[in-house]
Simulated assay, not measured.
Amino acid sequence: MSAPYLLRRRSFLVAVCASLAACGGIPLSALPRLSRLSGQLLEADPAELMVAVQLDARLSPPPGSAPILTIRLAPKVEGAFAPVDLRVPLMLGTSAAVAGLEPPGAGRRWWIYGLSEANQAELRKIQDMVRHAQAQPGYQRGGTLAIALEQREMAVAPPALDHTPWTTWMQVSRREGFFEIWNGTPLEVRELARARR
Score class of each variant (00 low, 15 high):
Met129Trp: 01
Glu43Asp: 14
Val51His: 00
Arg8Pro: 15
Met91His: 07
Trp169Met: 02
Ser65Gly: 06
Arg72Leu: 06
Thr168Asp: 00
Gln151Pro: 00
Ala80Ile: 01
Leu161Cys: 02
Lys76Met: 08
Gly177Val: 05
Ala22Gln: 13
Gly24Leu: 03
Glu48Pro: 03
Gly143Cys: 08
Met170Arg: 00
Tyr139Gln: 05
Pro75Tyr: 05
Glu102Asn: 11
Ile71Tyr: 01
Ala47Cys: 08
Ala193Tyr: 07
Ser38Arg: 00
Pro165Asp: 10
Lys125Tyr: 03
Ser65Asn: 04
Glu188Ala: 10
Ala121Gln: 14
Met50Val: 04
Ile147Trp: 03
Val53Met: 01
Gly114Val: 11
Ala21Met: 09
Arg8Leu: 15
Leu31Arg: 08
Thr164Phe: 01
Glu153Trp: 04
Trp182Leu: 10
Pro158Ala: 05
Ala22Tyr: 15
Pro83Arg: 01
Val172Asn: 00
Gln140Leu: 14
Met129Ala: 12
Ser65Gln: 08
Gln54Lys: 14
Arg124Glu: 14
Glu153Phe: 08
Leu13Gln: 10
Met91Ala: 13
Ile71Met: 14
Thr70Ala: 12
Pro159Leu: 08
Ser35Thr: 10
Gly142Asp: 07
Gln40Arg: 14
Thr70Trp: 04
Gly184Ile: 10
Ser60Asp: 14
Leu115Asp: 10
Ser35Glu: 13
Ser38Leu: 01
Asp45Arg: 07
Ala18Pro: 13
Leu187Ala: 14
Ser116Asn: 01
Thr164Lys: 02
Pro158Gly: 04
Arg197Leu: 14
Leu34Lys: 00
Leu6Ile: 15
Gln151Val: 09
Gly114Trp: 04
Cys23Tyr: 04
Val14Thr: 15
Glu153Ala: 15
Leu49Lys: 08
Pro27Ala: 06
Leu37Ile: 13
Ser29Gln: 14
Pro27His: 08
Glu191Asp: 07
Arg8Met: 13
Pro158Asp: 08
Glu78Lys: 12
Glu191Trp: 01
Val53Ser: 03
Phe81Lys: 08
Ala21Cys: 12
Glu122Trp: 00
Glu78Ser: 13
Ala30Cys: 07
Phe179Ser: 04
Ala3Glu: 06
Ile126Tyr: 03
Arg109Ala: 11
Gly143Asn: 05
Leu6Lys: 12
Glu43Met: 07
Leu161Asn: 01
Pro103Ser: 13
Ser116Pro: 09
Leu41Pro: 03
Ala22Leu: 11
Ala52Met: 03
Pro165Glu: 08
Leu41His: 03
Ala80Gln: 11
Cys17Asn: 14
Asp128Gly: 04
Thr167His: 01
Asn183Trp: 03
Tyr5Asp: 12
Ala155Met: 09
Glu117Gly: 02
Pro75His: 06
Lys76Gly: 05
Trp110Gln: 02
